[in-house]
Design a protein around this nucleic acid. Structure first.
Lengths: 185, 185
DNA sequence: CGACAAGATGAACCCTGCTTCATTATCGTC
DNA sequence: GACGATAATGAAGCAGGGTTCATCTTGTCG
């Protein structure tokens, strides 16, 4: 592969990372090309379709999330509190959200990542989160009437655009997952 | 106004109610016209633009929600539990969602409905909900570290498409709003 | 009934945004 | 440094979907 082609591909992925993070799948190909400093045609040389390009970004982000989640799980195995690790993970998700969101939502669709491609990043991320949820519940730090699917669904509904709003959302939801008092009403 | 024009207008609004409820603002004008049993041109005779048509549906729905909320508030004034009335209201919102959603979100944008058009339906709905939130918190049935803006934000994030999923979401969020034990972690 | 204004029709228009491809430029090799 | 393969370019193509408008239809009133 020619050296300029490699460089362009990197710039395209880089630009896509940024713009997809901001605009989601509403990015426009010409804007993307402009940001990457290439012509639209070059986009199509490297990625046959818009979906493929976004898919690549999502895949990359999914991989990062999987690593992050498995790392958190390792911490738990080393004795850290499962709940606090989950909270940290939530924060990570809140940050690089627009890409991660796809993970969470597609993961939910893929029957919790168990079905097709059980070795895929999404499946691994979901598996790690599942283990932590179970541990947190066992430790009494998380409501037991909420399961992994619920958690993924809630995360998948976080606001996309506004960062502050999303942080607040995550905080509220996270708090809502803590165990509740016996019951009163 | 001619009698057939009146009938057509009703059919259009009716069709819009149904289709907007299902597809949100992704409804297509031709689908809408087909459902209403008229040609597209007729749509434009009655509503100059797609936004106007959707706006009409939303306005209608907002009015209904305002009535519903004020009714719930009346019940509270008559001695009912504010929290249980709020729960009932949540259920209503979950049902006719896609239209109500606009209410909730636009309401949030309109600085909680206090700013422009304080007599509007959105403002009234928000005001009634605010009163109930305050009452529920006073009664110790709802977390006090969550305010009206938070509530509207959370409601505004409910899943649009899937009814079951949305019901589950509302249940989880609603539960998360109950007071929590002193604190542990 | 006849006339006419109000209304309805739907094919054509236009704009936006993804995709193609003929042309041009660049890299790597002999 | 010249040649062929690889890559980049960007104007044109195309499709989806909202909007227009010349034409036809129909309700209403004298």
């Amino acid at each position: 592969m020619r050296v300029d082609a490699v460089r362009n591909r990197q710039q395209i992925v880089e630009a896509a990372r940024e713009l997809v993070a901001r605009d989601g799948d509403a990015v426009r190909m010409d804007a993307l090309a402009a940001r990457a400093g290439v012509a639209v045609g070059t986009l199509y040389r490297h990625f046959p379709t818009k979906s493929d390009l976004i898919g690549a970004v999502v895949e990359e982000s999914t991989r990062a999330l999987a690593v992050r989640a498995e790392d958190a799980l390792d911490q738990v195995r080393l004795g850290a509190s499962a709940w606090s690790q989950l909270e940290g993970l939530f924060a990570s998700i809140a940050q690089g959200y627009s890409a991660h969101r796809a993970v969470v939502t597609t993961a939910a669709l893929l029957e919790l990542g168990s079905a097709e491609d059980p070795e895929g990043s999404a499946a691994r991320a979901v598996a790690a989160m599942g283990a932590m949820v179970a541990a947190a519940q066992r430790a009494g730090d998380m409501r037991t009437d909420v399961d992994l699917a619920d958690l993924l669904m809630l995360l998948g509904q976080a606001p996309e655009r506004d960062d502050d709003r999303r942080a607040r959302y995550i905080a509220l939801v996270s708090d809502g997952l803590r165990p509740r008092p016996p019951a009163s009403s």
